[in-house]
Every structure is written in structure tokens, then in C-alpha cells.
Design a protein around this nucleic acid. Structure first.
Lengths: 341, 341
DNA sequence: CTGAAAGCGCTTACAG
DNA sequence: CTGAAAGCGCTTACAG
């Protein structure tokens, strides 16, 4: 049997309550006895039992990480693993555990989350994505559970804790960058229409063109594709159909999509960046491994992950913490896919 | 307060021990009372408290998933997220939780794992990778913890539960495929030398050439690069240095590396597959999105993930279960990067 | 500043 | 087949 709080108490010559309090570094315990108790813990190699702590304190010191539903390409995005790693890192430091919730469809995911909540296995949740009208969020909110999001919430924005980039601004910055390089015929290619982020980036794209006094004809400059990218070719062809409206530069909502777009462009006979310039978002490994290497907007994934975790834990530990939103800065990483016009 | 076993007992008119036993579907309880109790549970919306169950039963119903240390490109491999998703799916069904262990270096990871083990937060571990001389495995083994691996163990193979492909055979099959297409000058490019799988695939490569009676000059046909792919260019150039030994086809140990290799090849003036054919492994999203699309060996990640989880849970629940190894079949997915010679 | 005691919500011999 | 009771290893008012 493992060593328990009783063994420590006996060895240190104090009550178990005193041991418990020094574990929590209670201010009521004198430094002298704390030292004595800590010595005993060290000598015995004592580590508090997790289940017992949870049961007695009504707190689990674990946070549930909610992944997006796993169909579609979105799920394969390296973004998620990166965020998870950062969350995990913070949790390690704070002595929290991370527990994963995923599912192949919304129903399955919801069941899994409900289970976690009702069995009392988590103190709070982190939702890794943000879409329109999400049942998951509705449940979390109704059930009055603590949660935080990566990405701007569509529902209950004013009452939820979240960390995000200024996606609209980044869309604008990306477009302005192209404008500065002399492009005036700029198109936008996005996927995953239900993702809040995709739409926001497009809004930023419109902002920039508008400020530059360039009229937008959606038919000729905006292309939304489904998330598995299978059908980009034809619509893309259409975008380039008329010589005088054909874009000389493209803002693409995600690195992975940008890789597909470049590939299709090549098939259509366009070279990047000689014929068409491309800037995309996320600065993931795809951006670095693409050929040519993608100019991309870095969204600082480590910060995104670390901050949600930190803020959520703060909220869990002192329930009063006000609702916070936190905006992480982005940055253009210049590589090889944008040419001057 | 949530509803407890006492409430259910009262409502059903039985003792709490009877409720507990019907939760576990004990054979000693009559079907009649089980029905009565289940009715009461349903009426009250009862769900057993997780921490209390763990504390009383000395079992946690959670498995720890150990990720590879996070430096280097390997970590970005979509493989891990896919496996995790599958493990998570099985765990959901079996009412297990999955808890993540990761770290930026071995020391941090080990600390995190030790914590989990000593605090009693998991019943067993799944290790997602296999390398030479892994401290993590040594610890798991010494501490007598239950674990399973994805990939063939380097240490304690005869006493560990694992699920893997026949990597050596897949290396051989890949090479034979090239041979059948008429190539005779075939090179091997691998990274991540400490991964057992990389070495095994290379061994298969050698097997095939040997059986075909083709001599191998390592200098001229084998290139091992570090895992961040940064330095592939020069050694690759060297591989193609002499016209008469330059390979007409390459076996590449991973899709991500293959993408890099193709890119560098292009820079060196070689077209794929016209000048050089390429076959790689994993059939990840990189294979599908590459241009041209990669011919790749599918390793059936879903099976890999589901089976480790299933087998580990079996082992946890009936400790007698013998050590098992399970081999999942692979399959060549023909795409656009291999041409006939 | 410290301790004795009750309690968290289950499970599991033990007895019948 | 079922129940009373002890126990899992902690935490936290309460009292001093």
C-alpha cells in the first residue's frame, strides 16, 4: 500500500489535519511545523491520493479539453495538437490533469461531455473551436459549467472567458500587405464556413479593400469551399475565368487550404508567386513545408494555449474572477509566396 | 448537491450496497431488484460519483496517453492526433477517461508520468511512440505499471503489450513495388533515427534489394537526416551526385519528410515522378495534399489506436491477460509519385 | 497555531 | 439474494 496522510502525521508527530493543511500551504500553520511535516513527506515519499482529495474537496483538479467533431479535414489541422500540448504544459505546472473529450459527431461528443460533467470528473472545460450555433456550448452554458474557449464565441460572448486573435484585424493586415505590394485585384478563399474565425478573416479582407476604395464583387473575388477541399478546382477556375477580373493575389483562410489552392493553381497553369501571390493564416508546419514556402500570418498558438489554460484555472480557483477576453497578437511571416506587382 | 447512492437506495427501498451491486451488474442481485433499482436511478437521474468510486475501488477508470517529447517535427505529425482520437473513442464507449501526459523534454515528461502514477490517477498507460533506450519505458517497467505501446518496443518486447504494423515488411513491400515498376537504383531516405519504426522500414528496404540481388552501397543509397528536415538539401545533392549511381526512385520513411524531399528535389532540378519516383509511409493528410499526390503506404491508424485501447483495457480489467502483440496490416495506396522505368 | 471528529460517496468483506 | 458496517484517504468546520 502507498503511504498515506496518516503515516506522515505519525512520523511528523502531528494530526492529519495539520498535514493536510501544510499540503495546501495554509497560512494558519507555522513555518516550523510546515518544515517538519514536509520533511516527513519527503522521507516517506508521500504523494497525496488524487481520488481522496477530489472526493473530500469536491474539486477534481482536472480540466476537460473539447476537440472539434472529428469528421472533415479541420480535425487534421496541426493547430489542435499544438494547442493541446500548450494546455497540457500549463496543467502540468499547476498540477492539473487534462482529460480529453472527442467524438465522431456532435451527439457522441455531447454524451461524452455530459458524462464527464455529471460524474464530476472535471472542474472546467476548454473548447478548442468556435462555430455557429453549437449544441455543445449551449449545453455547457445551460448546465452552468465552467468553460473557456479558444476563439471568439458565437453565443454568450459577453459572459464567456475566451482567448483569441483579432481575426478580423489579421484578415485586414493580410490584405493590406498584398495591397502594399501593389496588388489591386485580390481574392479571398475560405473553407469551413461554420468556423467563426473564417468569417472574421473574410470580414477583415473586406475592410481593407473598402478602405482602399476598391469595390468588391463577391462573385469575382470570394470563394468558399467545403472543408475537405475536394472541390476547389472548378470554383477556382471560375475565379480566374475572366482575364480582367482574375485576381493577382489571394488571401487564403488557412495554410492547409493554401497548399491545396497552390496545387490546383499549378494545374490550371498559374505559378505562385509569379502569376498569383498567396498569403494565408496560422503559420503551421504546412506553411514551412510547402513549396514555395508560404507567407503566412502567425497566430501565436503557444500563447493561445497557455493563456486559456491559465485563465480557466484562475476562474476555477477563485470563482469571482470576472469574464475575460484576451486577444493575442498576430504577425506576418514573410516567405516566398508573395511577389510585388 | 447531486443525487447520491443513498437517495437511490431510499427510493428503491434497498440498501446502498444493493445499489452499488446493481451498478456493477453483480450476478448475486436478483433481476427483479435490479430492475427496481435501475428504475430509481433513472427517475432520479443518478450518475455515480467518479472520485468516490475510484477511492473505494482503488481503480480509476482512466488511462494515461503518453505523447512523444514535443521538440522536433515528429510531434507535429498528424499521426498522433489521429491515434489519440481513436483511443478516445474506445475509451468513451468503455466509460474510461483519457488523460494526457506530455512534456517538452524527457525529464518533464517523466515527472508528469510519475505524478500520475503516484497520485493514482490512471490505471494504465498507452505510449504512442517507440524509441531506443527510452527512460519512460524503463520507469514504467521498473515501477511495475500497466502499459501498452503503439509501435514495437525496443525494451522488454517479450513482456509488453503492443500494437504495430509489420514495419519491416512494409519497407520491403514499398521497395518491391518500386522494383516491379522497373527501378533498380533505389535510395532510402529516413529521419528520426531514434524511432524504431524508421530503422525497421530501412531494414525492409535492404531485405527487398538483397532478395532482388541488388548490392547496396550505403554511401550511395541511404540518407538519414535529422528530424527537423532542415538539412536535407546538401546530403540529398550528394545522393544524386554521380550520374551512374543516382537513384531513380526513393523510399522515404514518412509523408512529411517526403514532402520536404520532393521540394528539395525540385530545387535541384529533378521532377517527381518523371526523374525520380517516390513512395512513402503513413498515408497521412500530407500524402493527399502534396503535389503531386504521394503514393504512400497506409498503416491503418484507426485500427492501431482502437486496438491498443481495447487491449490495454482488457489487461487492466483482468490482470491475468497474457502479453499480446498485435500486427495491423498495411496497404499500398497508389497515387502520382511513382512512374514506371 | 493545532487537533479530534465528522463527512465526502462509494465498495466490499462478512454475516445471515 | 440482501443488508449493516467498516473503510478508502483525504478536507474542513469547529473548538480550543
Amino acid at each position: 500500500m502507498a503511504v498515506t496522510i496518516k503515516d506522515v502525521a505519525k512520523k511528523a508527530g502531528v494530526a492529519t489535519s495539520t498535514v493536510s493543511r501544510t499540503i495546501q500551504d495554509h497560512s494558519s500553520i507555522s513555518e516550523k511545523t510546515k518544515i517538519k511535516v514536509r520533511q516527513a513527506m519527503a522521507d516517506l515519499g508521500y504523494v497525496p491520493n488524487f481520488s481522496a482529495q477530489s472526493l473530500a474537496s469536491k474539486t477534481t483538479k482536472t480540466i476537460g479539453v473539447i476537440m472539434p467533431v472529428s469528421d472533415g479535414v479541420a480535425f487534421q489541422n496541426p493547430f489542435f495538437l499544438e494547442v493541446i500540448r500548450e494546455i497540457s504544459k500549463v496543467c502540468n505546472e499547476k498540477h492539473y490533469m487534462v482529460s480529453l473529450a472527442s467524438g465522431k459527431d456532435t451527439g457522441e461528443l455531447l454524451e461524452s461531455i455530459k458524462m464527464m460533467a455529471r460524474r464530476g470528473t472535471v472542474d472546467g472545460f476548454i473548447v478548442l473551436y468556435s462555430t455557429w450555433e453549437d449544441q455543445i456550448i449551449e449545453y455547457l452554458h445551460e448546465a452552468n459549467l465552467i468553460y473557456a474557449m479558444v476563439g471568439r464565441p458565437y453565443l454568450f460572448e459577453n459572459e464567456t472567458l475566451y482567448v483569441d486573435n483579432d481575426n478580423r484585424l489579421s484578415g485586414k493586415d493580410a490584405t493590406n500587405y498584398l495591397l502594399q505590394k501593389g496588388h489591386t485585384q485580390i481574392g479571398y478563399v475560405g473553407d469551413d464556413l461554420d468556423q467563426v474565425v473564417t468569417i472574421e478573416r473574410m470580414a477583415g479582407f473586406r475592410d481593407a479593400l473598402q478602405e482602399a476604395g476598391i469595390a468588391i464583387n463577391p462573385q469575382q473575388s470570394i470563394l468558399m469551399t467545403d472543408s475537405d477541399n475536394a472541390t476547389v478546382t472548378q470554383p477556382l477556375e471560375k475565379l480566374f475565368e475572366h482575364q480582367k477580373t482574375a485576381p493577382t493575389a489571394l488571401v487564403v483562410s488557412d495554410d492547409m487550404l493554401a497548399v491545396t489552392v497552390m496545387q490546383r493553381l499549378l494545374m490550371l497553369g498559374y505559378q505562385v508567386p509569379m502569376d498569383v501571390s498567396i498569403i494565408s493564416f496560422n503559420n503551421s508546419i504546412f506553411a514551412k513545408m510547402a513549396y514555395p514556402k508560404l507567407t503566412s500570418i502567425d497566430i501565436n498558438v503557444p500563447q493561445l494555449g497557455q493563456q486559456v489554460a491559465l485563465k480557466l484555472i484562475d476562474k476555477i480557483e477563485e470563482k469571482e474572477a470576472p469574464f475575460v477576453k484576451m486577444i493575442i497578437p498576430h504577425e506576418i511571416i514573410e516567405r516566398e509566396t508573395v511577389a510585388s506587382k
